[in-house]
Nucleic acid binder design. Structure first.
Lengths: 156, 156
DNA sequence: ACGTTAGACCACCAAATCTATAGACTATTG
DNA sequence: CAATAGTCTATAGATTTGGTGGTCTAACGT
């Protein structure tokens, strides 16, 4: 499950990715633009910063910005930071494997096998997709219902 | 996330699928064979029964059995019954869509777009896989214990 | 230089929900 | 009657989703 934390984090990343290079944004701005509780966003951005995905500056004129170009940030990474492993079950995770206590033999566990398959499918998408693609998406990717002329968030 | 409920349920289904046709099993048997707390399994099997996946009979000589051949039971269905929608986020679900309250326009939400992609990938696996295949798997299916040269990203 | 102040940062708190059980009782059937 | 499914209630613990209230750092005006 993608929790609200993960979701808010992704929305914030999208927001930041839309900034002009070098520009920064305040937590309060991002919160306002995306309907995210400011304080909650505080802790989310902090985690992303500690993970090296964002950088921040204090004081007047400070704010948050991506620490790398959007093309270098993988969605899967951000989600792992905020919500933990992608695998639907721990014993199917490659980055955070942990045996179940109720399974005698993990090698023959059908549940684990199938969930590993699912995990790989998820990872194939999320670890491949960059923030750049993620932001670019309008119309490009698989999901297009109708016209939708984008809707840019310009100034503040 | 696949919760323990979902996991236990799947294990129980595997157990039942291995029975000879016409044969039934007691909750206590299944619980014992799979290291599942009996009482918890009670409620799980009940839900699977109410969903039409299992049938049960009370009294001596009673027990649980699949209500259909294993080849007709889809894993995705069982998981939805026990753990809810497959989609990592509600607004990306096709079977249980629900708009987020913080999103002005679901159509342009990048998070939703990408998660819909993920959902489709998950569903493609889980809604295709039958209990029969699930049980058959030993060694055959996609999971190799060694390093995985797998990782294929087929298009979307 | 120096205080003001914007805004990041930090620590603890708390309600709500979800998870994973347990216990006791009821209903059904051979 | 005895075995076994089914039902109801409760609950401890974890997780999620925030909130409160402050501390720290650095730019800016004077």
């Amino acid at each position: 499950m993608l929790t609200k934390k993960g979701k808010y984090g992704l929305k914030a990343l999208v927001d930041l990715a839309r900034l002009a290079p070098g520009e920064t944004a305040f937590v309060s701005e991002i919160a306002l633009r995306n309907n995210i509780p400011k304080k909650f966003l505080d802790t989310i951005l902090l985690e992303l910063r500690n993970a090296g995905i964002l950088r921040s500056k204090k004081g007047p004129g400070g704010g948050y910005a991506l620490s790398q170009p959007a093309s270098a940030i993988r969605i899967g990474h951000a989600i792992r930071v905020l919500d933990g492993p992608l695998a639907p079950i721990r014993c199917a995770s490659r980055t955070a494997y942990e045996a179940c206590d109720d399974c005698a033999d993990p090698e023959t566990c059908q549940v684990r096998r199938s969930m590993t398959e699912v995990r790989d499918a998820i990872a194939a998408i999320l670890d491949t997709m960059t923030l750049e693609q993620f932001v670019a998406a309008p119309g490009a990717a698989g999901l297009v219902e109708e016209d939708e002329p984008v809707k840019k968030i310009v100034g503040r």
